[in-house]
Design a protein around this nucleic acid. Structure first.
Lengths: 337, 337
DNA sequence: TTGTACGCGTTATCAG
DNA sequence: CTGATAACGCGTACAA
């Protein structure tokens, strides 16, 4: 391994026969440099393979040009068949790439990881921190914000101690559309498989269910899941037991809806003839399920892009950053309901 | 958002009534500081919420205490039902956590991303770079190594321009064990579903297949896949068409093996009665397939841990870092073969 | 045991 | 348009 010394600005300057200042200007794309000199400097940079020392640079600029995306989950959860994280990462990545910022992914399933991320950010490793999801009343976003670090969350934080800008989708509106569709179809015993109640997405979809059924004057039937397919299977079995006469089920995630489809099939119920099923997400796979899943589409990648844009504004010092952006959801009707 | 000034060493020193040097010593855990002073300093640190400026610190120490793990894939590939990446990330994460180093994940599916990672590393953002996989003759590992940046790869790099330390598993040995098992079981028409031939894992498993069948004096039958389940389905159909009389198939990944199981079922072949199937990976789900999958176990998380350990040694300047570590594989016999 | 003083590699502010 | 020169915040010989 060649442990050659890294060339400095000084070295480039000597080789090009100019001052450090001039080299710095060229490297940073200043226009006020004579063409001939610029060329000489660029040649020297090339020959020496010069790359600016990030530590020195950010010591004076106060910037690192890299931004963290926190995945407050364990590796097992992040990397599963749940396509939420990939989608949000794609959205964030695309927007940051366009802005030439480096995306830094950090998983913090454990408590210790949580604390290390805090130090990492406060120490100035990154210019800002985005959260891909929030569990319970996670203090970290507020903590960082109070430190003056730009923070944006995906999903409304449950604690708004110092209010942190967030991007979310219209959960309630999506659920309402789903329930309306079921009611219009003549369904009268509409159950739900709720998401985890330590996450705003889970809570708001359940709240939306409550509100919609109340408006429609229909009886409720709730089972608890955690967004995963397995939990959908278990919850559906539970529902069938407690409400054998149900004729529809709204699952708070596509994966749980798929689990429900499977459990219904196992129980000999036909979808949608006996039981209508609606999910929430609109993952790719939902187009190919049996039957294809009617579901509430939420623009996850778009949420990621939006989150990144807000972050870039925050970093740029834009005072006009909206405290929240809520993206619309949309009912996608296929065969299951 | 409180944009309070970040306290510096100087501020802490003033408050504690000591010099900057002393504060620095306390913060870095030097033992040569009087207990009373240490306490006063710690109190000041606490009160001010002081956290060392990473840029300033690494400007002098030449270290950042964070290490990158490159996933040279798109988000779609990284976050799929392939459990390779989660496993390796878990292994790496555990080892780095113990060493109190921060793990930084970077995905570089695109060409541009590739280049940005190079600059990121060369600029000194991280102390070292690990690669979770390698495609073709990726020049990046060598490029970084030549720059004097510690590099470790998971999987033998196809180009060893400057030889880069790597951790891999015994592909050939695993394949040989699988084929031996099939032959001993009386199978005589053993096909294979090969992995992508731009990755060493794909190449070596196919090479191993060639060698094993040659040794056994049996005819070959090869179809091409890319480690995914879908490619396994397609490849199996292809094989059945070209070799209707095959009585066994070795798939170079568990996911492809699962695809093969499905295709065989669709074709009305019984497993293992008509066709024996063996995979490669031993993912959790392979215990629950129908039938449970006989497969070659490769210790992925252990490879991640080993890779991290090698990296830590490299960073510590240990001259005794092995140029390569090859972990054993093991045939796990279940019901499919 | 503690403090002084220098240097790490850049950028930015001034003169020239 | 270019070149000195002063920060930026910290670690660490060296001196006290």
């Amino acid at each position: 391994m060649t442990t050659r010394e890294r060339p400095t600005l000084e070295a480039v300057a000597r080789r090009a026969g100019v001052s450090r200042a001039t080299v710095s200007r060229v490297v940073n794309g200043s226009t006020t440099v004579a063409a001939t000199i610029r060329e000489a400097v660029n040649r020297a940079v090339e020959e020496l393979g010069y790359v600016p020392n990030q530590a020195a640079r950010s010591l004076v600029t106060q910037r690192t040009d890299s931004i963290a995306l926190i995945l407050p989950e364990t590796a097992n959860r992040v990397f599963s068949d749940d396509l939420f994280f990939p989608a949000i990462i794609r959205g964030v990545g695309a927007e940051l790439e366009a802005a030439d910022k480096q995306l830094v992914l950090m998983m913090t399933g454990s408590e210790a990881g949580h604390h290390r991320v805090e130090r990492y950010a406060v120490a100035g490793h990154v210019d800002g921190v985005m959260f891909a999801s929030i569990h319970g009343a996670d203090p970290l976003p507020g903590l960082l914000a109070r430190r003056g670090i730009p923070v944006v969350c995906s999903g409304r934080p449950m604690t708004a101690d110092p209010p942190v800008p967030y991007v979310d989708v219209d959960h309630a509106g999506g659920v309402a559309a789903a329930v309306r569709h079921l009611v219009a179809d003549g369904r009268r015993k509409i159950a739900t498989i709720a998401g985890p109640q330590d996450m705003v997405a889970g809570i708001e979809r359940l709240t939306g269910y409550h509100a919609s059924l109340r408006d429609a004057g229909l009886p409720e039937l709730v089972a608890q899941g955690d967004f995963t397919r397995e939990s959908g299977i278990l919850a559906m079995r539970d529902l069938l037991e407690r409400g054998p006469d149900l004729d529809a089920v709204f699952a708070a995630s596509d994966l749980m809806a798929h689990g429900a489809l499977q459990a219904l099939r196992d129980a000999g119920r036909r979808v949608p003839d006996d039981v209508a099923v609606i999910g929430f997400d609109d993952f790719e796979i939902s187009r190919y399920s049996d039957p294809p899943l009617t579901t509430v589409r939420q623009p996850i990648a778009e949420a990621g892009r939006t989150m990144a844009r807000q972050m870039l504004r925050l970093i740029a010092g834009d005072p006009e950053v909206a405290p929240s952006v809520v993206l619309p959801t949309e009912l996608v009707i296929r065969a299951s309901a």
